[in-house]
Design a binder for these strands. Structure first.
Lengths: 112, 112
DNA sequence: CAGGAAAGTTAGTCATCGCTTTCGTAAGTG
DNA sequence: CACTTACGAAAGCGATGACTAACTTTCCTG
């Protein structure tokens, strides 16, 4: 079944893919330009892009022969959910939202 | 340098290791009892435990011949930091929750 | 159409990973 | 001391993953 988190997690477990994600976190970029930032071949980057796309972490937009990519931040939500789960702050999303609404001001800091 | 996040990320990318982490999230448990919860051999679980320990996600405490493990939540901090980074530091908490909420209902059955 | 640019696809290689089997080690019991 | 319990360590195996090289596809231009 591969939960969404599973794919997202596998995707960002690869350092190169994290670098790609960071690269297109705040801007759209064509595949070729993305590949230029690394020392691997374009097909390699292309494969990474597909993994990220299938994990719901990237959005692809075509423009002529170019394919523009940018990060899809919502794709990281399942991961955040897992972290929150482990952290013991909440058990499900609805509850977390409720808590956030209730305690926006006193919730900010944790990590202890 | 192998950032701490790198190891933690690789560690939790494995489904079985996540299951182990969940198992000892709120309670200490000896290696043997942990292994009983899975259908792989004890050495296999033992290897997972070591990976998690080296990633800073587990704490080991010896008691006689037993080795008790429990989750070390602070180990997930670097990961959380990465997520926050990707999510955009400028976004405040409420906005983040809202986006996550949108992402959940939006992502349900695509990625195909 | 022909020609070129941008990118994905396929096949095959090498390293890594998760697993099992076998063996070793440390602590408790008689 | 021998014996058992609880566990890790080492070696080897099959599967997966990241990469390269070569090919194909899509789109634009003349």
């Amino acid at each position: 079944m591969t939960e969404p988190m599973d794919e997202a997690l596998r995707a960002i477990a690869e350092p190169r893919r994290r670098a790609i994600l960071r690269l297109v976190a705040n801007q759209e970029m064509p595949a070729g330009r993305i590949a230029e930032h690394f020392e691997v071949t374009r097909p390699a980057v292309s494969q990474h892009l597909q993994v990220l796309k299938e994990a719901g972490l990237l959005i692809e937009r075509r423009e002529g022969t170019k394919r523009l990519y940018r990060a899809r931040r919502e794709g990281l939500a399942p991961l955040r959910q897992f972290l929150d789960e482990m952290w013991g702050e909440s058990l499900d999303f609805a509850r977390r939202i409720a808590e956030a609404e209730r305690g926006l001001s006193d919730h900010r800091s944790q990590a202890g």
